[in-house]
C-alpha cells in the first residue's frame, strides 16, 4: 500500500506508467468517441419535439458533466498537494485547469448553438448556463493566477488555495443562481423535462459521457507527462530519455 504511494510520488515511475496507460486508453477513447458520435448522429431517431437539433446533446451534456467533475478533480489534487506536499498532485492540479476550461467552453458553445433552433436565441440567462459561465471564469482565474507567478511552486500552491475556495463556492453559486433564475424566470421559455428521454437515445449518451471522462483522463495524463518532463528537465532520467529520443 505505502510503496504504491511512494511510487506515485516518483516522476519517472508515473511517467512510465502513464505512457503505458495512454497507449491503450487513448485509442480506446477515440474509438469510443467516434462510435458514440456516429451512433448519436446516424442511428437514433430525432426527438419528437426538437427534431434533429437534439443530437447536440451527445456532446453538450458529456462536456458539461465532465467540466464540472474536472473542477473537483482539480480541487482534490490541490488539497492533496497542499496537505501532503505531493509533487504529482501539484502537477495534476495544474494540468486540470486548461482541460476543464476547454470542456466548459465546449459545453457553453454547443449549448448556445443548440439554443438557437430550440429556443430561437443564442443565449439565455438560465440558471445552468449562467453557472457554467461562472465555472469558466473560475477555471480561467486559476489559469491566470498560475501564469502570473514566476515561481511555479508558489503558483501551484496559490492555485490550490484558489481552487479550494472555488469548491466551497460552487454549490453556493449554483444554488443562488438557481434561485435567482426562479425569481426572474421569463414565461416565454419553457424547458422540456429530461425524464422523457428514450432509452435508444440514452445509451449513446451514456457511452459519450464515459468517453468524455476517458478523454479527460487522457488529456490530463498527457498534460502531466509534459509538465513532469519540464519540471524534471535537469534530472538524469529525463536527459537519458531526451538522448534516446534525439538519436
Amino acid at each position: 500500500m505505502w510503496t504504491f504511494f511512494h511510487k506515485l510520488g516518483s516522476p519517472p515511475w508515473l511517467y512510465g506508467i502513464s505512457g503505458s496507460i495512454l497507449r491503450y486508453l487513448l485509442p480506446l477513447t477515440l474509438l469510443g468517441l467516434v462510435v458514440g458520435a456516429v451512433w448519436g448522429l446516424l442511428y437514433t431517431s430525432p426527438d419528437f419535439r426538437q427534431g434533429n437539433s437534439y443530437r447536440i446533446i451527445y456532446i453538450h451534456v458529456p462536456s458539461a458533466v465532465v467540466a464540472l467533475a474536472g473542477y473537483y478533480v482539480m480541487a482534490t489534487a490541490g488539497a492533496v498537494s497542499l496537505i501532503w506536499k505531493m509533487k504529482m498532485a501539484d502537477i495534476a492540479m495544474k494540468s486540470c485547469a486548461p482541460i476543464g476550461a476547454a470542456l466548459t467552453f465546449v459545453a457553453l458553445v454547443t449549448g448556445a448553438i443548440w439554443g438557437k433552433p430550440t429556443w430561437g436565441t443564442w443565449w439565455v440567462w438560465d440558471a445552468r448556463i449562467t453557472s457554467m459561465l461562472i465555472l469558466l471564469f473560475l477555471y480561467l482565474g486559476v489559469i491566470a493566477l498560475y501564469e502570473a507567478y514566476d515561481n511555479k511552486e508558489a503558483a501551484s500552491k496559490a492555485c490550490a488555495v484558489l481552487s479550494l475556495v472555488g469548491t466551497v463556492n460552487i454549490p453556493i453559486i449554483y444554488k443562488s443562481v438557481d434561485w435567482w433564475y426562479s425569481l426572474h424566470q421569463p414565461a416565454s421559455i419553457k424547458f422540456t423535462g429530461e425524464s422523457t428521454i428514450h432509452p435508444s437515445m440514452l445509451y449513446p449518451l451514456l457511452l459519450m459521457i464515459i468517453c468524455f471522462y476517458a478523454l479527460f483522463t487522457c488529456a490530463l495524463l498527457m498534460n502531466m507527462r509534459s509538465e513532469i518532463l519540464s519540471r524534471e528537465r535537469r534530472t538524469k532520467w529525463v536527459r537519458k530519455l531526451a538522448a534516446g529520443e534525439g538519436n
Binding site: 471564469f137 473560475l138 491566470a144 493566477l145 475556495v165 472555488g166 453559486i173 443562488s176 435567482w180
Partner: peptide, 16 residues
C-alpha cells in the same frame, strides 16, 4: 488579476 479571481465569488452576494 484580483478582479478575475474574486468576481465570480462575489456573485452570490450580489444576487441576494
Amino acid at each position: 488579476l484580483i478582479s478575475l479571481l474574486i468576481l465570480p465569488l462575489y456573485m452570490p452576494v450580489l444576487i441576494f
